[in-house]
């Protein structure tokens, strides 16, 4: 009797695990099933390579792919040097107390809701970009990317710090013994040893950046065309979903958001694969 209850409880544990994993598969399944009409007509390839012009009956999402690529990559590129500097400060240069203070600030920043970054962005950053660059409404690729950099910097920084902090103490002592300073420690010992965490942090930030909805939606202007320069308006895949989801459920506009969803799912899976590759040696260590 007792063994039976134990068995059923263990089955509940297993069931929950498989149910949760199933959710990940189910999301993909729903995207595929709803996008099915497009697959049947074989239009999926042309959809991701053509322009968005509903008035002319064209529903390609190429501009959104370009918008996501532009905003996400600019945001990540802006945040890389910032994160390196901040991580070096927290992990190497700052005196213990200051290091703890900065670490706390960066951790706290990860807890600020995205919508608040967006809100501040609209009323603080966009007017600034408008005045400074004399750029229309100020809602453009640059505004979204700048705010996105603020959003992903704490994540990337903390990931870097984890990598830097793993450096074996004996290596650091060796540099000290040879009369090296802290900058030499950072450049010759810590950075080369942390390359997995560096690539990992950038990948993670890129995943976060391509998946962000609110900042792009609120700050990029949402024009569905390929941006030529940072001061032009653009629309991301995520923003496109948020803008079009209320359309008639049979319309080609509505169907196009499932292609966007599939693309985003694909990119996320890709980042997971990269991250797991990078983590693999550490994980084996732990088991």
């Amino acid at each position: 009797m007792k063994a039976l209850t134990e068995k059923s409880v263990v089955a509940v544990f297993r069931g929950s695990a498989f149910l949760s994993a199933g959710a990940a598969a189910l999301i993909l399944g729903f995207l595929l099933v709803f996008g099915l009409p497009l697959f049947r007509e074989g239009r999926i390839f042309s959809l991701v390579t053509t322009m968005w012009a509903p008035a002319e009956g064209r529903y390609g999402i190429l501009p959104m792919l370009a918008g996501t690529a532009a905003i996400a990559s600019l945001g990540v590129v802006l945040s890389i040097p910032l994160s390196f500097g901040a991580a070096a400060l927290i992990s190497v240069f700052a005196p213990r107390r200051w290091g703890r203070f900065f670490r706390a600030v960066f951790l706290m920043a990860t807890g600020i809701p995205t919508v608040i970054y967006g809100f501040v962005g609209i009323f603080l950053l966009a007017p600034f970009v408008r005045e400074f660059f004399d750029a229309g409404s100020g809602l453009c690729v640059l505004s979204a990317a700048l705010m996105l950099a603020v959003l992903v910097t704490p994540t990337m920084t903390i990931f870097f710090v984890h990598g830097f902090d793993r450096t074996p103490r004996s290596y650091l002592q060796a540099v000290d013994a040879l009369g090296g300073n802290d900058v030499q420690k950072l450049l010759y010992v810590i950075l080369p040893g942390a390359w997995r965490h560096i690539i990992g942090g950038i990948t993670l930030a890129a995943g976060r950046a391509q998946g962000d909805t609110l900042l792009a939606l609120m700050l990029s202007g949402n024009a569905a065309r390929i941006p030529g320069e940072p001061l032009e308006s653009a629309r991301t895949l995520t923003a496109h979903i948020a803008l079009v989801f209320a359309a008639d459920h049979e319309s080609p506009e509505f169907l196009s958001i499932f292609v966007c969803g599939l693309m985003l799912y694909l990119f996320s899976t890709l980042t997971v694969v990269v991250l797991r590759r990078l983590e693999a040696p550490f994980r084996r260590q732990h088991r």
Partner: peptide, 9 residues
């Protein structure tokens, strides 16, 4: 994967 899928998806 579940953790990294964007919330809009």
């Amino acid at each position: 994967i579940l953790a990294s899928v964007p919330s809009i998806v």
